[in-house]
């Protein structure tokens, strides 16, 4: 029986290994006019992800924010290109903060970017990285060594916003499903959103759609994979239904050293079955305890 995750430790081969992991600033910011963007291309020989930090402007009714988006490998669907993840520390939402610095690293078999935040004295680092031979983008939150000891983390919640398998027409309603080692959770009552409680058995989640399996929009693709490391998690929920967006949120264990997630998105159009096969073939993918 395979041991658990973390996904970060399993063997680094999957199909042909071509080039090594690399991170650099991307040339296209994927932001609106007059907005600032900080895009990073994180790739290996097999797949490339672009993560952007999009600085929205203040408006007469809204404050500015910094949104983390994943416009590539799939621009329209998958992990939201505009705002796919955010962390809330002691009630402070990371989207209200401006990162203090971005540090690109290319070291050995992994490459990525460290993003430094200050949550009212609690210093945290968000890391996006990829390893040689792995299709997964890893997102890791850690507490920065610069945090004074008196600054305690009382609460931690992490959120994801995902839109797999986008339809061609905006008005279409969806039929989202969540697949975990426990099975397939469907939405037979066709509610807008239903809530599914997650636990440590859900070592990976496939977010898919029963109706629009590979996505019918020309710029859409199929399901996405989310791999939470339950060592750092206290609980989790996922909301899905007929609505386009699927929201996953996790309460993090404040005592953990770090909090890790694996993300996989692909621009290849795959049906649900094909994607499941693809996932099953990822070496080192954890199995449910």
């Amino acid at each position: 029986m395979r041991k658990i995750f973390p996904v970060l430790t399993f063997p680094f081969f999957f199909a042909a290994l071509l080039a090594g992991a690399e991170c650099r600033r991307h040339t296209v910011p994927f932001v609106g006019p007059d907005e600032r963007g900080e895009p990073f291309l994180i790739q290996n020989g097999e797949i490339g992800y672009v993560i952007t930090f999009r600085y929205t402007n203040p408006t007469p009714s809204a404050a500015p924010s910094v949104l983390v988006g994943m416009p590539l490998p799939v621009n329209l669907s998958g992990f939201s290109r505009r705002d796919f993840t955010w962390l809330v520390v002691n009630g402070i939402d990371s989207r209200r903060l401006e990162p203090k610095k971005y540090e690109i690293f290319n070291s050995g078999n992994r490459a990525g970017v460290h993003v430094h935040y200050n949550f009212d004295g609690v210093k945290m680092i968000q890391t996006f990285q990829i390893r040689d031979g792995s299709p997964l983008l890893e997102m890791i939150w850690t507490r920065s060594g610069g945090t004074p000891p008196e600054e305690k983390i009382k609460t931690l919640r992490l959120h994801f916003n995902v839109m797999p398998c986008i339809a061609a027409r905006k008005s279409d309603s969806y039929d989202r499903e969540v697949v975990t080692p426990r099975g397939v959770s469907e939405n037979p009552d066709r509610v807008r959103r239903k809530r599914l409680k997650l636990d440590a058995r859900d070592v990976w989640l496939i977010l898919q759609d029963a109706k629009y399996q590979a996505g019918t929009h020309p710029r859409a693709a199929g399901p996405v994979l989310l791999v939470p490391d339950w060592k750092g998690l206290a609980s989790g929920n996922i909301s899905f239904g007929t609505h386009q967006n699927v929201f996953a949120d996790f309460t993090l264990d404040t005592g953990a050293e770090c909090w890790r997630f694996g993300l996989l998105d692909s621009d290849k159009k795959r049906s649900n079955g094909q994607f499941r096969e693809f996932v099953d073939g990822i070496p080192g993918l954890p199995v449910s305890p």
């Binding site: 203040p58 007469p60 404050a63 500015p64 200050n118 949550f119 009212d120 004295g121 210093k123 600054e151």
Partner: peptide, 14 residues
Amino acid sequence: VGLWGQFRFMGRGD
């Protein structure tokens, strides 16, 4: 008022 600017109250360590 419609044209006023915004003041953000920064945190400790900012």
